Simulated assay, not measured.
Amino acid sequence: MMGWLQKQRAKSRLRKAFQAAGLYVTYRSGARELIVFPKIHSVTSNDGRIEYVFTLIDGMDPKEVVKKEYVFQQVFGQHVQLEGDYKRFTLNIYHRGLPNELSYSFEKIKPHLEGLALPIICGMNRHGQYVAYDAISEPHLLIAGESGSGKSTQLRSILTTLIQYYGEDRLHIYCADLKMSEFHIFKRCRQVKSVCTTVDQLKRMLRFIKSEMARRSQLLNEKEVAHINDLPESERPPIILVCIDELVIAKDDKEIMNTRVLII
């Protein structure tokens, strides 16, 4: 909780940021020039952060607020989060940043996967809560970043979580490890049906999956449903997950890059 004096100091600091960013409107009153800043509606402190809610003055360009986010970082520090629309904005100032490393623990992750048909663990947010989403509704995931940023580590975390979440009867995983260094640890897992290490092996794997998807599409058409999860449990084939590490190695292969596989 913040006292009255603390709130006034916090508001003063935000107005300082507004002024540095040029986020204000000036009016003339005789010889005087009046400066009007965006209206600050509230300042609250909880969960290791301070939250400001403010609205722009009519006529102010909201794009200028987003463009000047760096000014808020200069005033409050780098751990800021700015969200808003055409007029109303929320600025969160965090006392600490995101952790540089997370120790994997399925027991800690598991409660955050409840209710998700195919949970993809993303990591931890600023509140120390694990974040996951359902790959059934969002079936395509691309992880990109510079070398050494943790792309392969993230993939291993996703696969490790799914292998512990589902048995072989519910999930089949097909991996391509074109760098030949990342997925060998999964070769003996029952859910993992293939670990390709060459472009030719990847082609054969994608051909098989494409034919399997055609078979499943025919099944869905016959049963008049949209997804295998809509089938009776006794008729439901396992979910297929395709995971390719270092796809860039195969970027010049037209057959691979032109393959269209619906994950259903």
Rank of each mutant, 00 (worst) to 15 (best):
F89Y: 09
D134S: 07
G48M: 09
E138V: 07
M60V: 02
R215G: 02
D230A: 06
V80M: 06
R207C: 07
D169H: 05
T197P: 06
E235M: 15
H127R: 02
D169C: 01
K39E: 12
E255V: 02
P237Q: 10
H172P: 02
F89N: 05
R190T: 06
H227E: 11
Q73K: 15
A10I: 14
R13Q: 13
C243K: 05
T153P: 04
R126C: 07
R49G: 09
G77P: 03
E235S: 14
R170A: 14
D169M: 10
H227G: 04
G30Y: 04
S149I: 13
K203I: 08
I263G: 04
Y133K: 08
S194T: 07
I240M: 14
H227Q: 08
R49A: 15
G97Q: 01
E83Q: 05
M180F: 01
E64M: 06
R88E: 10
V65F: 10
P238D: 08
D47W: 00
H127W: 05
F37M: 14
R236P: 00
L155M: 14
W4H: 04
L206T: 11
R49P: 07
D169R: 01
A226L: 08
N46F: 14
G150W: 04
Y94N: 07
G167E: 08
R15T: 07
G59Y: 00
K223V: 08
M124F: 10
F18Y: 01
K187N: 03
S105T: 12
C243H: 09
P238S: 13
S194V: 10
I120M: 05
T161V: 14
H95S: 12
A21Q: 13
A135V: 13
V192K: 09
K39R: 12
K7T: 13
I240E: 10
Y104R: 09
S149C: 13
Y165E: 15
R190N: 00
Q201F: 09
I249W: 03
Y27Q: 14
D253C: 02
A17W: 13
V192G: 08
L118R: 02
S181W: 00
P139H: 02
I35P: 04
K67T: 11
F18H: 00
I240L: 10
S45W: 08
Y86L: 15
